[in-house]
Design a protein around this nucleic acid. Structure first.
Length: 859
DNA sequence: TGTGGAATTGCCCTT
DNA sequence: CAATTCCACA
């Protein structure tokens, strides 16, 4: 395949408005200020307000800019008021970004964009307005995965299903999948429903939904699915929203799943269409339907299954299923890039974007192919890589930027050296004056992040982990929230159960079991049951008085709730419940951090009006935006990097089995591989100036060391744009520690091709040292006789002492030997060695580590 | 009922 | 190698 990259550096037609053609210039001159600086395609996407529009926006082509400018355009032309525009994104981050940019564009006038948000937050909001119609009340709780699992465990236990053989996690996964596909319990195909628990899967799903209603709770999937049900069962409500939203904008359309698609479809019908039933029929039209509305609908299967949608060559133009029987087509604008579809495993249907013009007849398709982000080499590498995928809509990204630095590929001995090498490169960039904010490390799997954290702590290099363990998922936060949830909604059994015995109150399993029985018998919440039980003698005196104390606490708090500010209430609750005390007494390493988190929680409550408002949002706002101000390296997964860009991007872990991930390959086959490849494409295109790829020869998986092969994606990069470099961090390997020469010693002899002896030899060495796992990829390497000396599977006992000495400041440390110290991450320990500002500390739990002194405090 | 140690299992990506 | 769960015992 030919190089898909063209770099029309001579084609100056429109990159800069000033150099544009006469017509373009005239328009630019005529239009309002916010339109200037757009290229013709972008401008087209902004100005085409009527009818459906699909914008295929490759990486770095100004997608967000188009979306926000389009909103600005709608508003300033008076076509709609802010509250009449529905604008959905996937992440809160994206929503926030749009609000920010819109604010900059329009002045301060963004206050009134109530319907700009994520699918889930908007779905949740609509659901709260009409909660009674779906058997909830407006203060319903949004359950997270943990609550979900616990609930399912209870159901499994009640049904005597062995949760060894049928784990609750698995059922949660199945239910999630069904909800992603828009399937209510009765719509799940019989075959699938039978897959779990000897045919009881479907029944369990139904039971689960019932329990949710009793608990006045919804899970994440419900925020959309129940919304769809609401719209289906109450056409008048639907019509209300159809009327309200004059314009719909969707970001990252390639990532929409079936439920989201259905939701959008419902909202994008014009309200004047005939009957709700017909509309529904149109909606569900599968290719064979030929317009016949089987509205009597044996209702087994009202929703087209994604499988069907995927396989059949569905687009026989003008066939049935076209929406909008009457009235003008809705003004819906979807923006996406099929090459950045990386959420297939979560139920996203690339198909949605591939068949947009079928769903929305007469759709105008606009391609944005001018990349304003990356240099020539980076774009060429990314494009060449993604060209290995089949079934793309096919875009050709172009840049007018210079070639810049080549993409680099670096091998490291193991993941630790990989981290060390990257750390070194970062420090070098830092010395050259590059901002750390412009540097990111993008990993495939989150467990890779630890290695970098450890290394950066040692170096004293500021970093921030983005999207790591979520703030609200931490045990202490969930505990604190559970207390507040019980106060807010005493029927929240899950929350109550979570904290009855936290901190320990002598209310163990036996007591809880008893409460459960009681509650079930009288069909009342646990809290109610507890209140009753303390007046009987069914409990031992000790447990009884303990439980009474708890209940009385809650009753008091419930009263105080109305009298006090919610932040104050939270402090009182954490204090009086003994929860804070519990952690204060705890001497383990992370106790201090947990207390800090609790403070942070209370602090974050200030932004909300009241307790109810806070609880509503906390479950949806997943990302904490921790101090983005200070200059720090960003560490995150490839998935959460989508939509971001950095000057320099490090991409470690390009090894078979990790990237592409083995499980993606096993479970999804070729589709999985292609999704992984898109992920690789996303990774490379995050970089503006430097993309640096790494692979390690040895990696620890599951605690055991494995020898790995470089990723096939490395082979798929265009040789002309890639440079193979030597690992710089390695005081360890290379000449120094008995491994013989580095594979990359002789870089020049490589020429620029991977088929050179050097490269093959490198591969061979790796393939040979046959650890366990590599499931043999095609061939070529491996057997040919590499002739390296032995012992390559063993790690050298090298140290990094020299490096540290060389860097240490030589100034006296504020610490002395044997000082007792505390470290945020590693906990307590004592100083065993001092070297300038670098300390060696023997931690009680974490073992011996080298740490910069500013990271610890004396205790 | 609470505790500590043994056993076990999972490390993909997330709204 | 983790964090989590299980299990025997106080």
């Amino acid at each position: 395949m030919t190089d898909p990259i063209q770099r029309p550096s001579l084609d100056v037609s429109s990159y800069q408005p000033a150099a544009g053609g006469i017509a373009a210039r005239a328009r630019a001159a005529a239009g309002p200020a916010y339109l200037s600086g757009l290229n013709p395609e972008q401008r087209d996407a902004v100005e085409t307000l009527d009818g459906p529009v699909l914008v295929l926006a490759g990486a770095g082509t100004g997608k967000t800019r188009v979306l926000t400018t389009r909103i600005a355009h709608i508003l300033s032309t008076g076509r709609a008021r802010p509250a009449e525009i529905l604008s959905v994104t996937f992440t809160n981050k994206a929503a926030r970004e749009m609000k920010l940019r819109l604010g900059q564009m329009l002045g301060q006038a963004v206050e009134g964009m109530p319907w700009l948000g994520t699918f889930h937050s908007i779905g949740g909001r609509i659901l709260r307005y009409h909660a009674e119609l779906v058997q909830l009340t407006s203060n319903f709780t949004v359950l997270d995965t943990d609550d979900q699992i616990r609930l399912l465990k209870q159901l499994l236990a009640a049904d005597n299903i062995d949760d060894k053989r049928w784990p609750a996690r698995m059922l949660a996964g199945l239910i999630d999948g069904w909800k992603n596909r828009g399937l209510t319990p009765s719509q799940v195909p019989a075959g699938e429903a039978a897959m779990f628990g000897n045919g009881r899967g479907g029944k369990l799903y139904a039971q689960y939904q019932e329990r949710l209603k009793i608990l006045n709770a919804a899970d994440f999937g419900d925020l959309l699915l129940e919304n769809i049900r609401l719209f289906r069962e109450h056409p008048d409500v639907l019509r209300q929203y159809q009327n309200r939203f004059k314009f719909i904008l969707v970001d990252e359309y390639q990532d929409t799943n079936v439920a989201q698609y259905l939701w959008l479809r419902l909202l994008s019908q014009t309200p004047s269409s005939p009957s709700p039933i017909l509309r529904d029929a149109a909606l569900r039209a599968a290719p064979q339907d030929e317009g016949a509305d089987d509205e009597g609908s044996a209702s087994t299967d009202p929703v087209p299954h994604p499988e069907e949608r995927g396989q059949s060559p569905r687009v026989s133009k003008g066939e049935a299923g076209t929406p909008t029987p009457s009235g003008p087509p809705k003004n819906i604008c979807c923006v996406g890039d099929d090459d950045q579809s990386i959420y297939g495993w979560r139920g996203a249907e690339v198909d949605n974007i591939l068949r947009f013009d079928h769903d929305f007849p007469g759709a105008k398709v606009i391609r944005l192919e001018r990349n304003y982000r990356s240099t020539g080499h980076i774009l060429a590498a990314a494009s060449h890589l993604i060209a290995h995928n089949e079934g793309r809509l096919g875009k050709t990204l172009r840049t007018e930027d210079v070639d810049g630095e080549m993409v680099t590929v670096t091998g490291a001995w193991d993941s630790e050296e990989e981290a060390r090498a990257i750390g070194e490169e970062i420090e070098q960039l830092q010395r050259q004056g590059h901002a750390l904010n412009e540097i990111a490390i993008l990993v495939r799997a989150s467990f890779q992040m630890r290695e970098f954290e450890d290394r950066f702590v040692t170096l004293g290099l500021p970093y921030r982990v983005i999207g790591g363990p979520r703030f609200y998922e931490r045990a202490e936060i969930r505990d604190a929230l559970a207390y507040l949830r019980v106060i807010n909604s005493p029927a929240d059994d899950l929350a109550f159960e979570r904290i009855v015995n936290v901190p320990k109150r002598g209310l163990g399993d036996a007591t809880v079991q008893m409460l459960h029985d009681h509650a079930r018998k009288r069909r009342m919440p646990l809290f109610e049951a507890a209140r009753m039980v303390i007046d009987t003698d069914e409990l031992k005196p000790k447990a009884r008085s303990s439980l009474r104390g708890l209940i009385e606490n809650f009753e008091r708090w419930q009263v105080q709730r109305d009298a006090l500010a919610h932040t104050e209430l939270a402090e009182i609750v954490l204090d009086e419940s003994g929860y804070t005390e519990m952690w204060q007494k705890d001497r383990s390493a992370d106790a201090a951090g947990r207390l800090e988190n609790l403070k942070e929680l209370v602090r974050s409550m200030e932004e909300f009006e009241n307790l109810q408002g806070f609880l509503e949002h906390i479950s949806l706002v997943m990302d904490r935006d921790g101090g983005a101000d200070e200059d720090a390296v960003s560490v995150m997964t490839l998935h959460s990097a989508k939509g971001l860009e950095f000057e320099t991007v490090f991409l470690p872990g390009w090894e078979e089995g990790l990237f592409p991930h083995q499980r993606a390959l096993d479970e999804q086959g070729r589709a999985g591989l292609e999704e992984e490849r898109r992920l690789a494409h996303v990774g490379i295109t995050r970089a503006r100036k430097r993309a640096k790829l790494y692979f390690a020869t040895n990696r620890r998986i599951h605690g055991t060391w494995n020898t790995t092969i470089p990723s096939r994606f490395l082979d798929e990069l265009p040789a002309a744009n890639v440079e193979i470099t030597e690992s710089k961090g390695g005081s360890g390997w290379g000449g120094m520690s008995g491994y013989g020469p580095s594979r990359f010693d002789n870089v020049e002899s490589f020429g620029s091709s991977y088929s050179t002896p050097g490269w093959q030899r490198a591969q061979a060495q790796r393939g040979r040292s046959g650890g366990g796992s590599n499931g043999g990829r095609s061939g070529g390497f491996g057997e040919s006789g590499a002739s390296y000396s032995s012992g390559s599977a063993r790690r050298a006992p090298f140290t990094i002492e020299g490096e540290l000495v060389a860097k240490s400041t030589g100034t006296d440390s504020a610490f002395s030997l044997d000082d007792r110290v505390f470290h945020q991450k590693f906990g307590y320990g004592h100083v065993t060695k001092i070297d300038g500002n670098k300390l060696t500390i023997a931690f009680d739990k974490a073992g011996e580590k080298k740490v910069v002194d500013s990271f610890v405090e004396r205790v």
